[in-house]
């Protein structure tokens, strides 16, 4: 008796979930799209660091992205990653962590700066194998700032200067911009109202050597497929 009752219950729950599916989708089977060989990582809003920002802020959390980057590296079906950037910047160390992770991926990476890739968005944008910027996007390059409790001693400045140096070193190592030029842009006066730094727009970023090319999705996907084809041909050669 008990078994029969259980079976009845199961049948009922099965049919009710079926009814739910039919109600919500009008069909019983969701058509599965084939797995994509190119994955997308979006870096939006603020790059959130150790401090949790108030929930009304749009943030990119490194604890969400770092495991995904590992998963991408491990999954043999994934052949490349496209990084989409529209960020106002944020935590220096969280941004550098993301940049280093992207730079050390063995799979081809291409970034597209859309809208804005400001401050710590700059190292993230240049961390990929090839970077694109859409003509209307901008990147603000400015000195690192500190919020919260600041102790008024010379060491504070040294700490800040070292942190800034890490950002500068990363950018010049992963892009074609010269250190002098990047520092000039970073400490320029008169470009930003009442602030130090430069707002670099689309084509200018390419002229300075910061970004590789002006382009959007089409160009990025072409480049990505080129990288994937190159990877495959070099793999074949090794086997032979």
């Amino acid at each position: 008796m008990n078994k029969e009752e259980e079976e009845k219950k199961e049948d009922q729950s099965n049919s009710s979930s079926l009814v739910q599916k039919i109600q919500s989708l009008g069909q019983t089977n969701v058509v599965q799209a084939p797995d994509s060989n190119i994955h997308v990582l979006t870096i939006i809003g603020q790059v959130e660091g150790h401090m949790q920002l108030p929930p009304q802020n749009k943030t990119t959390k490194y604890e969400h992205l770092l495991p995904q980057l590992i998963a991408i590296e491990q999954n043999p079906k994934i052949e490349g990653v496209v990084i989409l950037l529209n960020t106002v910047g944020g935590d220096v160390e969280a941004g550098l962590a993301l940049s280093e992770m992207i730079a050390s991926l063995s799979k081809p990476t291409v970034s597209i700066v859309l809208g804005g890739g400001h401050s710590i968005g700059v190292p993230i944008a240049v961390s990929t194998d090839y970077s694109f910027i859409v003509p209307t996007a901008t990147m603000t390059i400015h000195p690192v700032r500190l919020t919260g409790l600041v102790i008024g001693v010379p060491q504070t400045f040294e700490y800040l200067d070292k942190m800034q140096d890490r950002v500068i070193q990363f950018v010049i190592n992963h892009s074609n911009i010269k250190e002098e030029k990047f520092k000039d842009l970073m400490f320029a006066k008169g470009n930003l109202t009442r602030d130090i730094g430069t707002n670099v727009v689309g084509t200018e970023a390419v002229e300075y050597g910061l970004i590789d090319e002006v382009g959007g999705v089409n160009e990025a996907m072409k480049k990505m497929n080129e990288f994937i084809a190159n990877n495959k041909s070099s793999e074949n050669q090794v086997i032979q």
């Binding site: 797995d35 994509s36 994955h39 997308v40 990582l41 995904q68 991408i72």
Partner: peptide
């Protein structure tokens, strides 16, 4: 939805606003 697979965003089950069962 937080995913790197672009196909996930086309999946009807993960449209923002839907109730998860």
């Amino acid at each position: 939805l937080i995913s790197t697979d672009p196909q996930d965003y086309l999946d009807q089950r993960y449209i923002p606003g839907t109730f998860l069962s």
